[in-house]
């Protein structure tokens, strides 16, 4: 394993130290229990918005803490859910009496830990609503599985819902909006290479030269199929079809999209992929109103990318355009 670290055990903690030092104007870090919080928290008369999950997906979630997005984020160990004590303390730190929204990605550990945290917060008199993101079309959604995984829509939700809370919307309004974003967002990813979890020391899975994994999860979980390498055009055709046929989207729809790098993909390739996505959307009569191209929800150093599409209305676009000031996203300020 070749990584720019000191010791596998200290990766998360030492990275948090760097983040705090680099972005002291935006955020503060609490180390025990660990959470990243807006420097000006709690913000008066505002619904708090927090999220959390395993580390290794940076900039999500800590990089989205700041004005117009998250009030706090709880980092777990790499690819491992944080624990309820982190979520409870983060919730208290951002609570201004208007209630707090928990944005939870659909993994059994994350869901159970956030539910437990919500119980603890409610016992302390803080009103909490939780919204679960489950947007990964690569995974079968049925009564017989834990349901779809939560991936790229989380980033778009954190931006839109964060703006809504900043505008002063109520907890119920913010939670309803979050559920709407989840219902209208779809994602799919693919990998050219595996990633290596620092404490494991070896790649999570093996891919042969010329092999790719279609439908990969953000922790290197297997997806739909392992297949031979395809061109960017073929990949975006396949993933675009999987996403746009799932909702289903129809001609005349407006979308916000994200072409996201998994951590080890150069921007030259991500822009090339974005051009292909514009082509696919146009052929279906779908208008891309806003877009993100870059590394936003990563899997350590994995090479690969994901596409997220969110069917949007005017309100979502306006909230998207609202000012945001975080380490990972910044405009209008």
């Amino acid at each position: 394993m070749k990584k720019l670290i000191n010791s596998p055990d200290d990766v998360v903690q030492e990275s948090l130290r760097g983040m705090e030092a680099a972005h002291a104007d935006i955020l503060k870090v609490n180390y025990d229990p660990a959470y990243i919080v807006r420097a000006d928290a709690p913000v008066k008369n505002k619904v708090g918005v927090i999220s959390g999950g395993g580390s290794g997906h940076e900039p999500m979630h800590g990089g989205f803490v700041g004005r117009g997005m998250l009030d706090a984020a709880c980092p777990g160990a790499v690819f491992t859910s944080p624990t309820p004590d982190q979520m409870e303390e983060a919730t208290k730190a951002v609570s201004s009496g208007q209630g707090v929204l928990h944005i939870v990605k659909n993994y059994t550990g994350d869901v159970l830990n956030f539910e437990t945290a919500a119980d603890l917060c409610q016992a302390e008199g803080i009103e909490v609503e939780a919204v679960v993101v489950d947007d990964d079309v690569a995974v079968k959604d049925s009564l017989y599985t834990a349901g779809r995984r939560g991936v790229g829509t989380t980033v778009l939700m954190e931006k839109i819902v964060g703006a809504a809370a900043e505008r002063g919307m109520s907890l119920k309004e913010v939670a309803d909006l979050a559920r709407k974003v989840n219902a209208q967002g779809r994602s799919m990813g693919m990998a050219l290479t595996s990633c290596t979890v620092p404490s494991a020391g070896k790649p999570t899975f093996e891919l042969g030269e010329g092999e790719i994994e279609l439908g990969i999860g953000i922790h290197g979980e297997p997806g739909r199929e392992r297949t031979a390498l395809k061109t960017a055009r073929e990949l975006v055709d396949y993933m675009g079809e999987a996403i746009f046929s799932d909702l289903p989207y129809k001609s005349g729809d407006d979308v916000i999209v994200m072409v996201n790098g998994m951590g080890g993909t150069p921007l030259i390739e991500l822009y090339l992929l974005y051009a292909e996505l514009e082509r696919v959307a146009k052929a279906r009569g779908i208008t891309i109103k806003r877009r993100l191209v870059g590394n936003y929800i990563t899997s350590l150093e994995m090479q690969g990318f994901s596409i997220t599409a969110l069917k949007c209305d005017d309100q979502m676009v306006q909230l998207w355009d609202d000012p945001v000031h975080t380490a990972g996203l910044r405009w209008g300020v």
Binding site: P33, T80, T83, G109, L112, T116
Partner: peptide
């Protein structure tokens, strides 16, 4: 248990 187990088992046994 809730604070130290993690994963899904922490909240389940903690509960």
């Amino acid at each position: 248990l809730i604070k130290t187990v993690g994963g899904a088992s922490g909240p389940l046994y903690g509960t």
